[in-house]
Design a protein around this nucleic acid. Structure first.
Length: 701
DNA sequence: GAAAATAGCTTTTTT
DNA sequence: AGCTATTTTC
């Protein structure tokens, strides 16, 4: 049987008698448990892969899980000696699962199957229009309020009522925008990311036949990072896997309450609490053996998190040695900190004969990376910056996506506006305003309005002409999108809009070139997706088998378009340069590094707080978990630094070390004294470089 | 008066 | 690094 598992892991893998919660401490092998459990279900329990779903939060996590299952099951066969159809396994994000459900059940939620998915920029635009302001702070505030309402399953009427009770004017305004926003999305036959979870959940709650159909299809559920679920996601899980009068609950949730750091986007630990009350016979299994860090690091982590109220009692332990003492470095200011960290990193690497990739510098806010980047670059130390905005957020990709969305769904007004104005084709604001008014009165989409009789009278022929030309070409493309191979239709689309010329017209050489390269890369990727008969090993396997309309070979453009919004191009470019990692604490979750520098650990930064908002206990607790996540990223060594002073605007502020440093309860002697101002940090770097015999490699990124 | 340059400021991030 | 607000310059 599954060997190489400790007893708790093995119990978690084998327990199938009811709902199961696995509390997996940092570095305790949670992915291992999930993948082994899937293997166990298939190999030992005779589950068909198509009846199992493993749900994650990110594409990256889904992909990783997929690869690990693939490796685990390699060459294995069913009891009957047949190949295991792993492709039919559902391993995907919550959102991807939601889309699959919605595409199939669209009619039940008042959508056509080709509904569009609005990204957060589109939604931002909608709210901006509703609000009639350009104040980005305000718009973003309303956007996040609406998102929190949606994820909390509060509908617009409830939000309005709630606001009326509280008497909060801002909240009332947001609630009114919320109502219009929902109506607008509906008119566009579009959904936002939150709807992808909310709508299926609501559908299952009110339509038992559909619910049973999906319960029958997905018979066992595994949820990764359960502590990050929001109310909607929990609802969806309960409705699918929580059992019914026909069936017992069948799921395993894997998570760690101590690593819940996404409260600010709607995740709630209530879901962890709720699990025990909603499922009284819940089996709780704790994974407390850590395979990652030294004893000193774990003890510090345990000591910090002990200050949070406990949901479940849990204490990590390790069979590794004590390891190096944890060093605390007080620094004069942020420059001193950056210089010192880079110096210590270089020296440490030299002493340990380690590689750059063994090091990570972790911080609370993105902007903190700036100084470190500067100095790493100066010292020619290679580094990679985690995160960065995704490929799909780039304007050029969104431009092309707008065309695809419009082809699939002519009601998608935002896509219509973006496509018809990029590149410019003689349709300007005045034309669009007239069209918009007309469409509003006729209660039709912009596209439909442009093609309708009656608009002729409102527009001059030279305004109407390009409008009609555009629409007709879109109609032609849409026609072909449903039948012709995606590759051909894409080529024709691109030829028709002269996108490359537009880029070189509107941007300088460098910009245009980079944008065009991205565009081509995106097109290539689309075409691969469109022509590849069945995704290759380790690729997107979110699909079901052919009978259900997903995962069939040679998708046409229409089918492709419908999945694009959620996809990310994780494949291929898996280069792993030997470079120091710079990452926010949030982005570092789930990763591990031999040597970690945790920087800027000061009051106000690590328990982050802004001047005008008061720090509730809950906020401090989430910050503490963030500290816990940071500490537990380290395998062998951990160095923490904080600045006595920090520059802001023209002034320097003095700072206090974070309360979390004290909470680590370090008994060791304080850090090796680094305060030797006989040599400036810069000189020391120079000395070190001389010692190492020349500069390192060039910086990456 | 409008465009260009510069100074200041950042919570965290995914789908 | 990117975005906004403000100042500088023509």
């Amino acid at each position: 049987m599954s060997h190489g598992l400790n007893s708790a892991q093995s119990e978690a893998v084998r327990y199938l008698d009811g709902p199961c919660l696995v509390l997996a401490g940092a570095g305790s092998g949670k992915t291992r448990v999930i993948t082994q459990k899937i293997a166990h279900l298939i190999e030992d329990k005779g589950f068909e892969p198509r009846h199992i779903a493993a749900v994650t939060f990110t594409n990256k996590a889904a992909k990783e899980m997929q690869e690990r299952i693939g490796k685990l099951m390699e060459g294995k066969t069913t009891r009957e000696g047949k190949r295991i159809p792993l492709r039919q396994l559902t391993v995907c994000t919550f959102h991807s699962l939601g889309v699959q459900i919605l595409r199939m059940e669209a009619e039940h939620v008042g959508l056509k199957p080709q509904f569009s998915i609005m990204d957060s920029d589109d939604c931002f635009g909608l709210i901006q229009e509703q609000l009639g302001t350009t104040d980005k702070k305000l718009i973003r505030g309303v956007q996040s309020t609406i998102s929190l309402w949606k994820n909390g399953m509060v509908d617009p009427e409830a939000a309005i009522a709630q606001a009326a009770v509280s008497g909060n004017a801002d909240e009332h305004q947001a609630a009114l925008v919320y109502r219009n926003y929902v109506a607008t999305l509906n008119a566009y036959q579009a959904v936002d990311f939150d709807d992808l979870i909310r709508l299926p959940a609501e559908l299952f709650a009110r339509n038992e036949a559909v619910q049973l159909k999906w319960q029958n299809r997905l018979r066992y559920f595994l949820v990764d990072e359960y502590q990050d679920t929001n109310a909607c996601q929990y609802q969806l899980l309960k409705l699918l896997a929580g059992g019914s009068h026909l069936r017992a609950p069948a799921f395993t949730a894997v998570g760690d309450d101590d690593q819940a750091i996404y409260g600010w986007r709607g995740a709630t630990l209530d879901n962890l609490r709720g699990l025990q009350t909603d499922f009284p016979d819940l089996k709780v299994i704790k994974l407390e053996q850590n395979y990652r860090s030294t004893v000193r690091i774990l003890e510090a982590a345990n000591a910090v998190i002990a200050n949070n109220p406990k949901l479940f009692d849990k204490k990590l332990w390790s069979e590794h040695g004590m390891g190096d003492p944890i060093a605390i470095h007080p620094m004069n200011d942020e420059e001193h900190e950056a210089e010192s960290v880079v110096f210590r990193l270089s020296a440490h690497k030299f002493e340990r004969r380690a590689q750059f990739r063994d090091y990570a510098i972790l911080y609370r806010g993105n902007h903190q990376a700036r100084l470190f980047e500067q100095i790493l670059r100066r010292e020619r130390i290679p580094y990679v910056l985690s995160g960065g905005q995704s490929f799909f957020d780039k304007a050029e990709i969104k431009d092309i996506c707008a065309y695809l969305r419009l082809i699939a769904n002519p009601d998608d007004d935002p896509a219509f506006i973006r496509a018809i104005t990029t590149p410019r084709r003689g349709v300007g604001n005045t034309t669009l305003e007239v069209l918009g008014t007309f469409a509003g009165q006729a209660k039709v989409s912009l596209f439909e309005a442009a093609m309708m009789g009656g608009i002729e009278g409102k527009l001059q022929p030279r305004q109407l002409e390009p409008l009609r030309v555009f629409c007709e070409s879109m109609v032609r493309l849409a026609d072909r999108a449903a039948k012709d191979p995606a590759t051909e239709v894409l080529d024709d689309l691109m030829a028709g809009i002269h996108y490359e010329a537009y880029l070189y017209d509107s941007f300088d050489e460098r910009q245009a070139q980079s944008r065009w390269t991205n565009t081509l890369e995106f097109l290539e990727w689309l075409k691969r997706k469109g022509t590849k008969p069945e995704a290759a090993e380790g690729e997107e396997a979110t699909g079901y088998d052919n009978a259900d309309g997903f995962g069939s070979e040679g998708k046409n453009l229409l089918e492709l378009t419908q999945t694009v919004a959620l996809m990310s191009m994780l494949e291929g470019r898996e280069e792993d340069p030997d470079a120091v990692r710079l990452s926010t604490l949030h982005a570092s979750k789930g990763l591990e590094y031999p040597h970690v520098f945790l920087v800027g650990v000061e009051e106000g930064i690590l328990p982050h707080c802004r001047e005008d908002d008061d720090m509730t206990d809950e906020k401090i607790e989430e910050e503490r978990r963030l500290m816990y996540v940071g500490i537990t990223r380290a395998q062998r060594s951990l160095q923490i630094s904080w600045c006595k002073k920090r520059k802001r605007a023209r002034e320097t502020y003095s700072c206090q070390p974070s309360r979390f440093i004290g909470e680590m309860k370090l008994e060791e002697a304080p850090a090796p004294k680094d305060e030797t101002p006989a040599m400036s940090p810069k000189d020391r770097l120079g000395a070190l470089k001389a010692l190492l015999g020349g500069p390192g490699k060039t910086a990456a990124g």
